[in-house]
Design a protein around this nucleic acid. Structure first.
Lengths: 126, 126
DNA sequence: AACCATACTTACATAAAAGTAAGTGACTTC
DNA sequence: GAAGTCACTTACTTTTATGTAAGTATGGTT
């Protein structure tokens, strides 16, 4: 390792660097992939089994088509899911979890579990 | 349960309701508490042990004071952390995880682990 | 008296995320 | 041939999140 690199590392503390992006926790890396309002929810549904576009729309009633498409594309770009178009009319498109995406299961499961617990606490109080 | 309530539930599928908020997955509940760019990172650091404001600033170099205060307040409001002011000059304020907040550990750990793995994959490729 | 430290607060500005509504293409059924 | 299905796209608007920079209070140190 060059001295300048080393100095840079010491000056900035333990930080993860990737191209022009700098993270101070691996959590930030995860957020790049499943951060935001929809991505974790979408991934959670697809991890339960392959889903069509329309099925996801049904499963996530409040999402609109633009958001659904956009977030699916980003998940695809990050290799969390794959997109398969079937040459049929009307078209059929299937989204499946990748192996890499499947490794998100513990994260999504933990989030799901915690959310359920927190919701019950809220429901019990006021 | 009143019939109208029941009908409402059937019409809208399995959804969690809390006041004026409606969720279709417990994941959304979790996101209300630790969603966004900073909250999970902050909680992660405080879960490792009590931290002062200035220490958090040091641990999360890219955050600014306004954001740090704001997010700390929201974590406090959701009973994830507590805030203790010591009557000293200069002031000392300590943030600690609550019991409820400590239950986030599996979530944050999973996020951290996954982020590390994903980052290594990225680093190995290009 | 001037300066330092800590942990903020405030007003304001910018950027990013999310939402709305209308339209597209290819083929099927009525 | 009009209408319907599915999975989008596009242009545009609104909302939410995040950031900047300056200022505040208390009291200790020089």
């Amino acid at each position: 390792m060059a001295i300048s690199e080393q100095q840079a590392k010491m000056a900035e503390g333990k930080r993860l660097v990737q191209g022009d992006k700098v993270y101070s926790t691996p959590i930030e890396v995860t957020l790049e992939v499943i951060g935001g309002k929809w991505k974790s929810v979408i991934a959670y549904h697809i991890i339960q089994g392959p889903q069509r576009f329309s099925e996801l729309k049904r499963l996530i009633p409040d999402i609109n088509e633009k958001m659904l498409t956009q977030q699916l594309r980003e998940l695809e770009r990050n290799e969390v899911i794959t997109r398969t178009v079937f040459a049929e009319v009307p078209p059929r498109v299937e989204y499946r979890i990748t192996e890499h995406g499947a490794s998100l299961q513990p994260v999504l499961e933990a989030m799901c579990l915690w959310g359920r617990g927190h919701w019950q606490q809220l429901a019990a109080k006021p």
